[in-house]
């Protein structure tokens, strides 16, 4: 298993230890806003365990991914605030 994983968050390259979730990577990248609510308010993770859907973001162009459940993988392109 590789020690570190390389991905990008909103276009910025990021290197994280293997086993880091996408949610944690986004926080490491300094972002607090994961998504916009139906009325446009900023939202971020609440439950940390796949229940609340507040941590949704876009991974490799696929929207609505629950970032707290997904491990970072090499080459992943993550976009927040959509």
């Amino acid at each position: 298993m590789p020690e570190r994983v390389e991905l990008s968050v909103n276009g910025r390259a990021l290197s994280v230890p293997w086993g880091t979730t996408v949610a944690a990577a986004v926080a490491l990248a300094g972002e607090t806003r994961f998504r916009r609510s139906v009325h446009g308010d900023a939202r971020g993770p609440l439950c940390g365990m796949g229940i609340c859907f507040e941590c949704r973001l876009t991974i490799n162009d696929e929207p609505h991914a629950r970032s707290c459940l997904i491990l970072c993988a090499d080459g992943m392109e993550v976009r927040t605030d959509e």
Binding site: G19, T21, A23, A24, A27
Partner: peptide, 13 residues
């Protein structure tokens, strides 16, 4: 965040 949720996320980086 939830306390349990935060702990889980912290363990994941």
């Amino acid at each position: 965040v939830g306390p349990g949720g935060l702990e889980a996320m912290v363990k994941a980086g």
